[in-house]
Simulated scan of single mutants.
Amino acid sequence: MNPAVQNMVISLGVMQIARKISFEDPDILLYTRIGYVTVQVIVLGLYYFVSMAIKSKNDQTVLKYVDAPNAMTQEPGQLVTTTVRDYDLSETSKLLRSVYMGIAMMGFLHGYMGYTQPLFVQAIMGLKGVYEAVPIKVHLLGQKAEGDLKRPWKAAGGMFGAAGGPQTDNAAITEAEKRVGGSKKDE
């Protein structure tokens, strides 16, 4: 199943469960808050641990790929040359930023607006996000970086499966190198 559709189905299912919970009860509200904070601390801790594992491995293997082109412009994707260590750290950093954005959103929704159901939903979705995170699979669970886990990692597809991931084929890399080389000569 498409990850975006799967997230929506799980969110709707968890929201149906959350409707049956009486969040007006102070004890239930307290446990929901504790559960949300606990999940976020676990998620942040796991991402920190993965960052430390990446840094300790210090894999300096060169990784070349053509980044996915921006859908808003007609420009082709840019050539990216990095190391496995730097790539994995940047991907883990993106995951951390998404957690921080979720925490900020929950701070607004719960702290300012007073909504409690999103705390319950986001606690479950936070665990699902960790389960699906590729750096966790590769560095924490020890799965080989092959197949779907091969670098550069494909972005999760949108609602209709239209995910333009990075290109790793030699033709695309050579074309991007020519563009980069050509622009240097023109200057």
Rank of each mutant, 00 (worst) to 15 (best):
G165T: 00
N170Y: 09
N170W: 15
L89G: 02
P76I: 00
M15T: 07
L12V: 10
L89W: 07
N2E: 10
S183C: 02
F23H: 00
V39E: 10
F160S: 01
Y48Q: 09
W153Y: 13
K55I: 10
K94F: 04
L46F: 09
F108D: 12
L127D: 01
N70H: 13
M15C: 14
L96C: 13
G45E: 07
V138A: 01
D148S: 07
M8H: 06
R97V: 06
G129W: 09
Q122I: 06
G102C: 12
G158H: 00
R33F: 14
D88H: 14
V80C: 03
F23Y: 09
F108I: 10
Q16C: 14
A155D: 14
V14N: 12
Q167P: 03
F160A: 01
V39T: 06
G158Q: 01
D148N: 08
T92P: 11
N2Y: 01
F160K: 00
T38S: 14
K178V: 15
P118Y: 09
L30A: 12
T38W: 14
G181N: 05
G111W: 15
Y100N: 03
V9C: 02
D27F: 09
G164W: 10
L44T: 13
V84L: 05
T82V: 00
D88R: 01
L140T: 13
F23K: 05
V134P: 00
Q16M: 14
M15V: 03
L149T: 11
L141T: 00
D67Q: 13
L79Q: 01
V14S: 03
N7R: 07
P3F: 13
R151L: 15
M72P: 00
V134E: 05
L89M: 08
Y115T: 02
G147E: 10
L29S: 15
E175V: 12
G165A: 02
